[in-house]
Design a binder for these strands. Structure first.
Lengths: 334, 334
DNA sequence: CTGAAAGCGCTAACAG
DNA sequence: CTGTTAGCGCTTTCAG
């Protein structure tokens, strides 16, 4: 027969004390005779006993699993990865561990993974919404597990939300280009689906409108090579734009490639939304509106912990400011 | 009074059946009267009942939590992030979820987090060892939870291990430089602590020895700016190297910055270990020995699942091949 | 096909 | 300061 993993009972037996005494020692209660503590400790060590979190959580009054869920677009992309790490760093001092998942813009997967968190009784959930509607959460998620949305606004469910200053960032980018004399400024992005992208577009349109300049929008770009092709296309038109504003990381890289291919990298200006490593080592360096994914992760984690601690205030919207980093490509005069 | 989360008992009561019937329906057993199934389903929906994974796992015979642990150096760095994503993709079809943690080269943290996994009864563990010795696992980790090591070899504990072809990759890099006529080739790396780094160094030394060439090793570089300073230093010596081989991502970037600062980027050759985004857009493009973190994650996950399914063969060592990607910097003649 | 009883590993509540 | 009893939400016997 296989003995299986030792239980508190086994420890109690080999230590010659009652189960409850073992429980007290394991939980660090101070009201135990030092001699018994020593006996229990010895038994724990010799049996390699580890307490069973699931069992204790089942019986305990606070019912904490010391685990939070973190559902992001794709844990493999740099933005999500840095955000993830920031959440972990906030969680660590509280003894919390992180269960992660990637949603890939798939609303079904979003429901599936939130359900997985509910079944595991995570103490909280940080979610970057993939689908257009989160009203299902009121049904699927028990009311005792708080949620914080991050990176994208949710719909149909009220909770704290941490967002980048998308509109403000876009506004700053376009104003910057206008200040350098540009009047034909194009926007390249991945529109429609993602609320974040729409906010950036809105910022762009607002500034152009303000200045009486004509917009030129290319949407539906989902990867780098599509962006490259679209940029080449755009610049070969009659009266091409003299400046580009790209709505996202991969699109920026596609535009850089296109400008290079066309030999225009020193004559057409470019500002990208979202920073990326080595942007400063390209030629020219790429001017960006930098987001701060680490700050977003920290803010989301802190908001979640406040809720877990019982805060019941109105849902809050927390904006993490963006920063324009001039590196050359955005300072080409028009 | 707060009702709390509904239990199977609540469902049974509102459906007018026994607890056990609810259990059967929830677990998809087929031997239930369709009429009762419908009643139970209705009760589940109306109460928003969700089964409690912890409670079921406690009583169940197989004792699976449907969760695996994944402990990496830093979930925020691109290498770990891509590996993480690959593990998740393998885990998903098996209905497994991933609990993640970053070790930051800290052996204490490694023990702390493996213990956290043990207490949560994860079904398995994928670990990128941080400390020099993993013999504690035999004590800390119950024998029923299999481990797979990834990215770095472990010591003192035998288990499947997935590694990049570090030695082979380094060998290829140095041979490549020699083929381009270089005789003074320096190695810049983060030595000592990390087994992986040592293997790369060993490959470098072996090839130089083979060709009767003098080694020049700079170690202890832990970040990009240290690497930059060291590179500048190195190249200002009398008889400086004509080619550099950098042992790691951040060091490569530091070297690129140094070469640029010294105006030597088109005259001193460079091959870096580990690929990075935009390496092809620099000038010159940076020649690298690319690892395949996604393949490593996949292989680790598959090996783990085989063990979880009961495989008891000898521990295996799985090597994931590296690829030399010539982009210019490594093809500067010496 | 359905249900009643027992008990997974642990902690709460109450005695001693 | 210590032990006993009951029971968390669920699945497992084993009877109907």
């Amino acid at each position: 027969m296989t003995p299986g993993r030792p239980t508190m009972n086994d420890v109690a037996r080999t230590a010659g004390v009652s189960l409850k005494t073992v429980s007290r020692v394991v939980n660090g209660e101070t009201t135990v005779d030092p001699a018994l503590v020593a006996k229990v400790r010895a038994a724990v060590d010799s049996l390699h006993y580890r307490p069973h979190l699931g069992a204790s959580m089942l019986r305990r009054n606070d019912r904490r699993t010391a685990t939070i869920g973190l559902l992001l677009e794709d844990v493999g992309n740099p933005f999500s990865a840095v955000l993830h790490r920031a959440v972990e760093d906030e969680a660590r001092p509280r003894g919390l561990h992180v269960l992660t998942g990637s949603l890939d813009e798939d609303p079904d997967r979003e429901r599936e993974l939130t359900r997985a968190c509910a079944r595991r009784h995570t103490d909280g959930l940080i979610l970057a919404p993939a689908g257009p509607d989160q009203s299902y959460l009121a049904r699927e998620l028990p009311p005792d597990i708080p949620v914080v949305f991050v990176d994208r606004p949710a719909a149909g469910f009220a909770a704290d939300t941490v967002l980048a200053g998308n509109g403000a960032g876009a506004t700053e980018a376009v104003r910057h280009l206008i200040a350098y004399g540009h009047r034909r400024i194009a926007f390249l992005g991945d529109l429609a689906r993602i609320a974040t992208a729409r906010q950036r577009l809105r910022g762009y349109l607002a500034v152009l409108d303000e200045g009486g300049l004509p917009p030129a929008v290319v949407g539906g770009l989902h990867d780098s090579s599509a962006a490259e092709a679209a940029t080449v296309d755009l610049l070969r038109r009659p009266e091409p734009p003299t400046a580009l504003f790209t709505g996202q990381n991969l699109i920026t890289v596609g535009a850089v490639r296109a400008l290079r291919r066309l030999g225009l990298r020193h004559s057409v200006a470019l500002v990208g939304f979202d920073d990326f490593p080595l942007a400063d080592l390209l030629e020219p360096g790429v001017t960006v509106i930098a987001q701060d994914p680490a700050a977003m992760g920290r803010a989301a984690a802190r908001a979640l912990f406040e809720r877990m601690d019982g805060l019941t205030a109105e849902p809050r919207e927390i904006r993490i400011a963006t920063t324009l980093i001039p590196r050359g490509s955005g300072e080409i005069a028009g």
